[in-house]
Design a protein around this nucleic acid. Structure first.
Lengths: 214, 214
DNA sequence: AGAGAAGCGGAGGCGCGACTCCGCATCCGG
DNA sequence: CCGGATGCGGAGTCGCGCCTCCGCTTCTCT
């Protein structure tokens, strides 16, 4: 605990704070439009600041991307907690919709959303916890199959990611119908599943690749 | 017609033909393990040839990737035709399984599978045709919802892509269970879908981005 | 077996993109 | 209203990865 990681280190001058916002916003836009290998200079240009400014606030391009990932994961986890509070079995479904919606909005950082980096790993852990609780709630109310695991919930979002990344700007809403079909598939049914779920261990390792190759 | 594009231009010396094979194989491996921005030199190294050899056979890195895409699309389309020949309504399901399986095997080129390049666009067109016919067959036998469109079939594969890319080496089979759930969702049901399908036009534009930006 | 075509390797060139540096501008407490 | 601290910009550096080039090797046809 103590003075964790993200907390305020010092107030940051007013203009500087504003520039930070501009940068994050610009990064979201640029990466969404051109993919993660858009140039850093382009992000700075769109934000209307110099590259120097960018690098003073984010020591590295990766750090900038991580900021986007943090934004996204934070609001998704928060939404999950909220949905969970209803405790009426409908939380899981609306959570999936919410999470999908936000993945679409912040599609720029999707390739890094589930792919490692210890900074954001804590948030992903929280995500897993919330997902498990939402699933338990939905199962308790008989709204989804009993043989689902919390890993299956993650997989749903990974699949939505595929749809979003493929349909990109042409049809930014294509994921909606897909999610509807998928949710129907999650409902209790007498069809047995023959393939095993991911284990909790595997699901965790998916989000934290090996040591430090990249 | 005439002497199309892919057909034999000249027999190619035996060792050269073998090297070409080695290169494609190496590319599949390397790109699968390290992603598409693995170095060209690495591919050559794994294939056991020099970069010069690689570039004599494939004028550009993109051309090498396209070769992988062609491989994949060709066998998927072929499998689709075969499944269609059964004409008993089960073709769609086994086609999806087959296509998913092959996407997993050739996961190195997934980011380019559905993303433009006029060379492979012809194959994607064939894919769309086969998918539509398989869907019609399945619907005629009452095995899937009547309100599905052939675009929905494509979307299923795009979503599988997301699962494969995310679970990568940790759990290369994770997509199986997901596909099972998805297929259940495709079955006829009394739940109405509230989101519209992609239009045929949109689905086509997804696979052929703008002019020549990139 | 010999000749010439076809193929091979890998050292470098070249361009692009992440990051650094430092003289100048802007903010804000007294 | 002034001075020092904080922040800014963008030209330049550096490394990396795609691709070229050319002297040598290997195949194949007679």
């Amino acid at each position: 605990m103590s003075t964790g990681a993200t907390p305020t280190e010092r107030p940051l001058r007013r203009d500087a704070a504003r520039n930070r916002e501009l940068l994050v916003e610009a990064a979201a836009t640029v990466f969404a439009e051109q993919g993660l290998d858009a140039g850093v200079d382009e992000v700075a240009r769109v934000a209307g600041v110099g590259v120097g400014t960018l690098y003073r606030r984010f020591p590295t391009k990766d750090a900038l991307i991580d900021a986007l990932v943090q934004d996204l994961l934070t609001s998704v986890v928060a939404a999950g907690r909220e949905a969970l509070a209803r405790a009426d079995g409908t939380g899981l479904e609306s959570f999936l919709a919410y999470a999908a919606e936000h993945q679409a909005r912040r599609r720029g950082c999707l390739p890094r959303l589930w792919a490692g980096d210890e900074v954001t790993e804590g948030l992903r852990r929280e995500f897993r916890v919330v997902a498990a609780e939402l699933l338990a709630d939905a199962q308790a109310h008989g709204r989804v199959r009993g043989d689902l695991t919390s890993q299956d919930v993650s997989v749903v979002l990974w699949s939505i990611r595929g749809v979003i990344e493929t349909t990109k700007d042409v049809a930014p809403d294509a994921w909606r119908r897909h999610l509807e079909l998928l949710v129907i598939g999650l409902r209790p049914s007498d069809v047995r599943l023959s393939s095993p779920s991911l284990t909790a261990d595997q699901a965790q390792r998916v989000t934290t690749p090996a040591p430090r190759p990249r």
